[in-house]
């Protein structure tokens, strides 16, 4: 999904900063405690502040199981998550990953190989209380592959998010042969060009400029940053996108015909079209 030598250029560092903050810097970080154990005997306990917590060893009794210990710590210490990591588990993950990775695979496939190596240890060498896995763990490589394959070949996909009078962040992704071969931003058209007055009127200019630069219209999505942050927060992202497209909180251009029909139907019939 990412080619061996994609062109990655002309990013506005400010736009990237905005995007990073929205994606990865939300809310208060979770407080965690991790118990490293060998043959179910704790050998080290650390917390997310980087402190060793040897006093918590006292909570362990010989007849206690690891799941019981992390449950006890969770209830006593008022933290968000407690992990139990068996001593060889981390090494097992690295070894398994190193054994099965294909160096000719694309980067996303390689990441999924790593994810699989981690998932193999979850519930075995790595226990978590309260139980629960991130939604990413359920995502399969084949699903992502299908999404990429759905994009017409030799396509540009553009996401533009607006602040009040500026382009808050803009990303132009080139896809060829099912792989990303270009990651750039609007800086590739005109370095430092970010100001805008009314995005709902001016967004078409961006599409036109991208077409002029790359010779083809991008499949484009436009929204303001409040909508984007709502999108990040929501759990049902697909439904949110469809709703926002039908109410024009998100504006799209050059979507393939089947998606346009879907959005049209949704606009007419609302949620019943799902």
């Amino acid at each position: 999904m990412i080619s061996e030598n994609p062109k990655i250029m002309d990013w506005s560092v400010e736009q990237w900063h905005n995007f990073y903050q929205a994606l990865f810097h939300r809310g208060t970080p979770k407080t965690t405690i991790a118990v490293i154990h060998k043959d179910n005997i704790p050998i080290k306990i650390i917390d997310s502040l980087g402190r060793s917590r040897p006093n918590l060893m006292d909570l362990f009794t010989k007849d206690q199981s690891m799941p019981d210990l992390i449950k006890t710590i969770y209830h006593r210490m008022d933290v968000d998550v407690v992990y139990a990591i068996s001593y060889p588990a981390i090494r097992n993950i690295f070894s398994e990953f190193s054994r099965i990775i294909d160096f000719d695979d694309n980067y996303l496939k390689q990441l999924f190989t790593l994810k699989d190596a981690i998932i193999n240890e979850m519930g075995q060498g790595i226990l978590r209380y309260p139980a629960g896995l991130h939604w990413l763990t359920k995502l399969e490589y084949n699903t992502v592959k299908k999404i990429f394959r759905a994009a017409p070949d030799n396509t540009l996909v553009m996401l533009t998010i607006f602040g009040k009078e500026e382009i808050w962040t803009n990303w132009i992704i080139g896809i060829e042969g099912g792989s990303i071969n270009l990651i750039t931003t609007i800086d590739t058209l005109k370095p430092g060009f970010h100001s805008i007055t009314n995005w709902k009127r001016e967004y078409k200019h961006i599409t036109t400029a991208v077409k002029k630069r790359f010779g083809k219209k991008p499949i484009a999505f436009f929204m303001d940053n409040e909508t984007f942050i709502d999108l990040i927060k929501t759990k049902s992202k697909f439904r949110f996108i469809l709703d926002a497209l039908s109410t024009k909180r998100i504006i799209s251009k050059s979507l393939p015909i089947r998606y346009r029909i879907m959005i049209f139907l949704r606009r007419i019939f609302g949620r019943r079209s799902n």
Partner: peptide, 27 residues
């Protein structure tokens, strides 16, 4: 060079050492 087993560094478990940088992880 990186794909040559005679050149690759080796872990304690005998596997290649993967560097996870995009756009390609490599030994």
């Amino acid at each position: 060079i990186v794909l040559d087993p005679e050149i690759q560094s080796v872990t304690a478990e005998g596997t290649p050492v993967v560097f996870p940088s995009p756009p390609r992880m490599f030994p």
